[in-house]
Design a binder for these strands. Structure first.
Lengths: 222, 222
DNA sequence: TCCAAGGTACAACGATCATTGCAGTAAGTA
DNA sequence: TACTTACTGCAATGATCGTTGTACCTTGGA
């Protein structure tokens, strides 16, 4: 999980071996296979073939299949969360018009981002397999991924609220509401990315989610 | 999927055999095992043992494992949807105060209902395994379960809207928003029912969801 | 009492799979 | 040049599993 000690020479250390490259290739290939097939169905041979690596290397690097799965979960969650946090900062950093800005944010957030589709399929696998995954792994995943993203969104919403644009009592909960309204229905309808869902429909759903987040559905308007 | 012809004698037909009982026991037992372990991990032997039935009976009744899985999906979806639709009718049939009534509905909707917990675990398995389930099965499941429930909620929301309590342009979408705000966060936090979540917290989340559904988060109040 | 339908126990087959050991190889380093 | 490190290919092992065939039992109805 964490590097024991930094053996960082002051001078540039030449790529001492392909060790790190193989590890990277394995994390990427295993993500694809685990995302498609799930933990049990995914075979070590398939993963090795997809990563361009021998099965023996998997065991040398990770120990066993469960450890590889856990490494993939944490790695993929961190990478995706990094991207999402960048998106949040880019679109919620400066608010001019709260509705326009949230709608633009929602459209980007709800966009497929095809290179991250495997990650979301993996998340579905985690949800389904939670009963067979170590507690520590689940916690590590939550902290490095979803919770980090939620915290980022919540902090932005709080700031926007103090600026007078929003009424937010529980920022974490508001963050959950926002992302669920924006993308909740989409993720259930774009099964494992197999059904792409046209962009226009995607924007319609996301826009409606943002408006619901802001105004609600009660008819006390005007 | 559908009974070919009704061989219904006019007089009470005595329980001709245990055939239907075994089928029922199998659907119930298989639901538990599939929900806990997922399709691939669940073994026929385990299912047979849990249902109090020989493995041979499974093959005689359903043909193979995949067919049993599909039968379980559709059966469980129908039963759960029936319950949910009854809840919708009971709590949204007559509206006195829109906020009070929705909050009461939300609390019931978000309640664990421990006897249906396996179904929701099964739904997570379906979401994860969608790529390995026949299109026809997925469609049948959607129609007999989630879509039926969504339609019921949407119709009630439309009626409530015409009565002047709500502003609803897309009733289906509004229905999705409502259930996601009420229970969206809960289902992700009560992993396979292992973490029960205290009732007070559950009500807090559900109430906040209902209020967000009605009023939104914008600070244009008063 | 006898029949037939449906259930059970049991053994077996073939396939898949995680995991390990071993022998060989390529490449960086002393 | 010799040593070390990490990767590869291959074979083997032990376990699990879906599926089938078979012989036997139970029970409700003719």
């Amino acid at each position: 999980m964490s590097r024991g000690q930094d053996s960082a020479d002051p001078k540039e250390r030449p790529p001492r071996s392909t060790r790190v490259d193989k590890r990277r290739a394995l994390l990427d290939g295993a993500l694809l296979v685990f995302a498609e097939d799930g933990y049990t169905r995914a075979s070590i041979d398939t993963i090795a073939r997809r990563a361009g690596v021998s099965t023996r290397t998997i065991y040398n690097q990770f120990g066993d299949k469960a450890a590889l799965f856990e490494a993939v979960i944490v790695d993929s969650a961190r990478r995706t969360a990094d991207e999402q946090i960048a998106t949040v900062r880019r679109y919620l950093g400066k608010i001019v018009d709260i509705e326009d800005d949230l709608i633009e944010f929602g459209r980007v957030w709800a966009s497929p981002a095809p290179e991250h589709a495997p990650h979301f399929a993996l998340v579905r696998q985690i949800h389904a397999d939670a009963g067979h995954i170590a507690e520590t792994t689940l916690r590590a995943w939550q902290e490095v991924g979803p919770l980090r993203v939620r915290k980022e969104i919540a902090e932005h919403l709080s700031r926007i609220a103090t600026a007078g644009h929003l009424t937010v009592t529980d920022a974490d909960l508001a963050a959950v509401h926002l992302v669920q309204l924006i993308a909740g229905d989409i993720t259930t309808r774009t099964y494992h990315g197999a059904i792409p869902l046209p962009v226009a429909e995607l924007h319609r759903l996301s826009d409606a989610g943002v408006r619901a987040f802001l105004h609600g559905h009660i008819s006390a308007r005007h």
